[in-house]
Design a protein around this nucleic acid. Structure first.
Lengths: 222, 222
DNA sequence: AATTTTTGAAATTTCGATATTTTATAGGAT
DNA sequence: ATCCTATAAAATATCGAAATTTCAAAAATT
């Protein structure tokens, strides 16, 4: 495994767990000390992370952690609603039993971790496990959409969402609601009702939208 | 201006004008000779282009021009329809006269170039001018959507669309239809009718979808 | 004959140093 | 005092070479 691979993974984690302040400069010369490598190796990693939107790159003025704003949070949340609704509805239409089975499995894993979190809190490597399982659930949701591009765009938006919702995620508020919402989404998938699915996805994100934000009402795939 | 900046722009052009075969390997060591720079400078540029999806990067196995497939073309086209419809409808809702004016201006430029193309063919720097004007028109269309993320995603998809539709674009077939479609989109914008806008955008792309492809029917913003 | 292992060339990644550009500060002019 | 200019320090971009990994062809094994 390449050095860059590990650094990439670790920096991605740090960028989505609040280790850097919003807007903070990310200097290759500084970060290299954390990994014992050359500054140009870090530079390359940062360039790759900026492809995901986790790092902002500007010519001749280096790299930064993106800054936070409420508008941005709304924007990213709306985009997630749009992409996941679209992807989930397409999946319902063409996914079949295989997709339902995979989604059920992903939900089972996630659900198991979420209930342990309820009991034990954010101890050990639960945050990491939860993080992986939550991503997998949402990715599985749209995985039968038949659109590679949609899946890619979703991953980018998902990462940005994680990055901008760091604070709220750390607090364990809404855990119970969250668990129920994931269950509701799974149920909608099994029911095959696309309109229900859209509602359930909207409800999952609703509380992260401020009220100036628009609500997506209709579907793209009928 | 940095060296990388120019190389970036030039390689972007080459990647969207058919200079490389689909799936062709892009070797830094080879490309560096075209620009008289070090291989690592090219590497950096390719990394940045892969952020746009114009280059595929795989760890330890370098860079490639993406391959072509009909499914991919459909996928990318559908995604453009989705993002542009959504963006244009949001723009209608919150753009106002200012947006309409900017769109009219962008259309005027594009229209002027398109009619010159009809007369003179793809001579001089007409392809470059058309390319710029067409992008600007479509970007203006969604520019009042209020969503930075949507605009960014759209740019990525737009670039990929250009890359995968190289052949058809070179041929000047459908020029007349294209001109009319842009006009129709402008009219829909001015009319303020979001459903009309969706239809017009769909019609603009319809002929680039094979019939296995799904048609987006409903709107996300009411 | 088919499969696995070795091996060397080619390609990719990493490095540390140098060149260029930006940013901050101080000095000088209006 | 405000604005412009020069200069030094810091940060970024570029380089070419060295280290590592992949790829494919030849050799060895089953």
């Amino acid at each position: 495994m390449t050095q860059d691979h590990d650094i990439f993974a670790d920096l991605q984690r740090r960028l989505t767990t609040g280790e850097f302040d919003y807007g903070a400069k990310l200097r290759a010369e500084v970060l290299r000390k954390d990994y014992g490598c050359a500054a140009s190796t870090i530079r390359e990693t940062l360039l790759r992370l900026s492809a995901l939107g986790l790092v902002e790159f500007q010519e001749q003025r280096g790299f930064r952690m993106p800054d936070y704003s409420l508008e941005k949070q709304n924007d990213i949340t709306e985009m997630r609603i749009m992409l996941e609704s679209e992807g989930a509805c397409r999946s319902i239409k063409s996914g079949g039993v295989d997709w339902e089975a995979r989604l059920t499995a992903a939900h089972h894993k996630l659900s198991h971790i979420e209930s342990r979190m309820g009991v034990m809190g954010m101890v050990e490597d639960l945050p990491k496990l939860w993080s992986e399982a939550e991503l997998e659930f949402h990715q599985t949701l749209i995985s039968a959409s038949g659109s590679q591009t949609l899946v890619e765009m979703h991953l980018m938006v998902y990462n940005r969402y994680r990055q901008i919702k760091i604070e709220t995620d750390k607090a364990l508020t809404d855990l119970a609601a969250n668990v129920q919402e994931h269950k509701n989404i799974l149920d909608a998938a099994v029911s095959g009702d696309t309109e229900l699915m859209r509602r359930r996805i909207y409800e999952h994100f609703e509380r992260h939208l401020s009220d100036t934000s628009r609500r997506p009402e209709m579907s793209l795939v009928g």
